[in-house]
Design a protein around this nucleic acid. Structure first.
Lengths: 210, 210
DNA sequence: ATAGTTTTGGAATATTCATTCCAAAACTTA
DNA sequence: TAAGTTTTGGAATGAATATTCCAAAACTAT
């Protein structure tokens, strides 16, 4: 049973002169990022709670108290990653002079960033947990829609600016770019030459201009 | 220690009048396929030996006696899948009237076959086990090279036949198609509309003709 | 039927897993 | 300093894990 708190840290409006409890000694979001790091590197099933306790530097009891359990901790870490990634790509794209350069930079970032073959957290989790975990699947489906919308809007802006030849099926193209993104993230786990991957991407990007 | 067998089932050339042992009551390759089925559906870590015993219909002791252990059984099942898939795609491609139709049929097969969201065994295993398992990584790298060679040779045959515009970087294109293949296999775990996926693939295929 | 060998069923083992629990330490406000 | 509450360390729990083991059943050739 959950007993509602009668006061907030440092403020005691209802009952005056009430002793304040000890506050958490770790930063929740910082710990969440460390957890994400581990889940990303090892996957969900291969990461044990012991691994988390060791890597996060917090106590087992604190972990269960703060994040209910392994699955919930994972979900929060995952959501954290999802949101920050989308924002990062949004900013990366719109910081470029044109659409082709935008996507080129995006894929360059993916390929070059992937030094330790971790791939993409989202892609790894998709193949590991779908279809078994339907809650996860719904989350990933939502993410796909958001990513394709981001790509589509960006392509559309390029069409308006005259950077892209008219009459192209931009929905299909956005879909293609997202599919390609997923493929590159898988390949980067086994392919060692970034230049070969970028050459493949370039074939698609060139198609935007014709 | 391994004591070498002095005779083969049914034949006793060295010591005559020797009683023959009981023979295995299950088909090894058939069991291997059942194991593959399970590893494909659930992934490596989520499949327990108990699951295998239940699903394969053989005894735990037989499993360990025949296939040494979980990891070795997995490796053999994996190799089985890898080889048969490559052969199947080879035949599918060369049974088509031209290169564009060949790749179109290949991707159609991938998308339509994927009814239960299992994705591709190879792709799933790549993201689950690389980089942790370096033996697996080497195997997958080998597979990539073979697939890209298959695609390249096929593209080359199309170029010779005049189906593909000259001057294209066919190595990069083969690479792109393999990357796209991986991407489609990931997406098919969360995307429900085959037509949308095929529309994306079509964008790339059209590029072959221009 | 019998001997010799292998397979088989199922118990046994030892490790690892996620989770719970509790007493002791820590912290905040007064 | 003291009261009240939370965090913390680490032991305890119980389920699941991969693997080993052994006696009994099964099979083949004679």
């Amino acid at each position: 049973m959950n007993i509602p708190k009668l006061y907030i840290y440092g403020v005691s409006p209802i009952i005056p002169h009430l002793p304040m409890p000890r506050i958490k000694s770790f930063d929740e979001t910082e710990t969440l990022e460390k957890a994400m790091e581990l889940f990303w590197k090892k996957g969900y099933h291969s990461t044990s709670v012991q691994d988390l306790v060791d890597h996060l530097g917090i106590n087992r009891a604190s972990l269960y108290d703060t994040y209910k359990g392994k699955k919930d901790l994972f979900m929060r870490a995952f959501e954290n990653y999802k949101d920050s990634t989308k924002n990062a790509y949004f900013e990366l794209l719109y910081a470029q002079p044109n659409v082709m350069e935008g996507f080129r930079k995006l894929f360059e970032h993916v390929v070059r960033e992937n030094t330790d073959r971790r791939g993409c957290f989202l892609v790894n989790i998709t193949t590991e947990l779908v279809p078994e975990d339907s809650e996860m699947k719904a989350m990933l489906r939502e993410n796909q829609i958001q990513f394709e919308k981001l790509f589509f809007d960006y392509l559309k802006s390029g069409e308006v600016m005259g950077e892209i030849a008219r009459g192209k099926d931009l929905k299909a193209f956005a879909n293609l770019l997202f599919t390609l993104y997923n493929g590159v993230q898988v390949i980067s786990k086994i392919e060692s030459a970034p230049s070969r991957q970028l050459a493949a991407v370039e074939v698609v990007l060139q198609h935007l201009e014709d």
